[in-house]
């Protein structure tokens, strides 16, 4: 079944999209030239949707969402094309007060390293109460009650003890749960989770993913989940975008993309996973390395590593176009078979 790109990209609910990024190109000027971090990135996060952003380190996942919340260092980057709408508003047109308002009330970001997001000298309880009171006009006692409640929601057994603790007294997994509690505390419409479990071990990771998923589904919060781990994204996200060297190369419903990946890069990414081959057999590594973003190759950025490349791939970058059930940016999408082996992986 062929579906038009615009159909697939449409948000699922009636409510307007939480985040739309349309054709965003962004660069960081440096003494050596401009690092072209994003090139023509188009993303839409519908209301109540959980969407994954996957790709190898340096492909632009964090820059994409930090641009949307204006968390990139001011004056150090340039938007060269495109636009962003966060709950219908343009973050680049906002002043500092508006931004603070949006970041606290509408959007919360959870980062990989929970320690850096907490103030090391203030007890957990005070920090939570502070966040709650910044967004709601409630009494101290009421804010404390809310704080205890959300800590309990995060399956923290002794909320009283945790509220009295300083950040360094908690394990990494506990700190991350506190931050997730904080992120949900002001009922945001959108949560951006940037590799929130990468530093944690698998048991704690599973708990945290569950807490994010259950809480988001219950409150109808949209989530952008950034990860380099395809397996994690496959367990959590309704839809996903695969990024390569600052461009989106494939996107669609998680199952459709992972069962029948059509971009040679997505296929290669799935093929190098050890869970898909016989023990000790050679893994299919991707030849070569990611392009230098100071001087990316002409045409398709994946071309120097792509086994399918032909002359057309040199001439012009491919744009997103429909493939069965999802969309792909590849000149040869009509001739490339969706990887059969990859579909075995999801069975």
């Amino acid at each position: 079944m062929m579906v038009a790109a615009s159909e697939i990209l449409k948000p699922t609910g009636q409510k307007p999209a939480a985040l739309t990024i349309d054709g965003l190109s962004l660069e960081f000027p440096t003494y050596a030239g401009a690092i072209k971090a994003l090139d023509d990135v188009t993303i839409e996060i519908g209301a109540s949707e959980i969407v994954g952003l996957v790709g190898e380190s340096g492909c632009g996942k964090s820059v994409t969402t930090m641009a949307a919340t204006r968390l990139l260092p001011e004056g150090r980057y340039r938007v060269t094309a495109g636009s962003i709408r966060l709950f219908g508003r343009d973050p680049f047109a906002m002043d500092e007060t508006e931004l603070q308002d949006v970041r606290g009330k509408l959007v919360s970001t959870i980062f990989q390293e929970p320690m850096s997001a907490l103030n090391p000298t203030i007890r957990i309880g005070r920090q939570l109460v502070g966040v709650i009171q910044r967004h709601e006009a409630v009494s101290e006692a009421e804010a404390e009650r809310t704080a205890r409640g959300i800590l309990k929601d995060m399956l923290i057994a002794e909320p009283e003890r945790i509220m009295r603790a300083y950040p360094f007294e908690l394990s990494g997994g506990m700190r991350q749960r506190v931050l997730i509690a904080m992120a949900f505390s002001c009922n945001p419409g959108l949560i951006i989770a940037d590799e929130p479990t990468t530093a944690l071990d698998v048991t704690v990771q599973a708990v945290i993913l569950r807490l994010i998923l259950d809480r988001a589904k219950r409150t109808g919060t949209s989530v952008v989940f950034i990860s380099h781990n395809i397996a994690v994204v496959s367990q959590l996200c309704d839809r996903l975008y695969v990024m390569y060297a600052g461009r989106i190369v494939e996107s669609g419903p998680t199952r459709a993309v992972l069962e029948a990946p059509q971009h040679p890069y997505t296929q290669a990414l799935l093929r190098c996973l050890p869970e898909r081959v016989e023990p000790k057999a050679e893994l299919e590594a991707i030849p070569g390395t990611v392009p230098n973003l100071l001087d990316p190759p002409p045409g398709c950025f994946y071309r120097p590593r792509c086994p399918e490349a032909n002359d057309q791939c040199f001439a012009k970058p491919p744009s997103m176009a429909p493939a069965p059930d999802h969309i792909v940016a590849c000149w040869r999408r009509e001739t490339i078979q969706p990887s059969i082996k990859a579909s075995e992986a999801t069975q």
Binding site: S171, V202, N229
Partner: peptide, 19 residues
């Protein structure tokens, strides 16, 4: 609890939460 393409995210009960 190991993330995998082959099975869904476990329910909280299966993760045996605890410090």
């Amino acid at each position: 609890t190991v993330p995998s393409l082959k099975h869904p995210l476990p329910e909280l009960a299966a993760t045996r939460v605890g410090e």
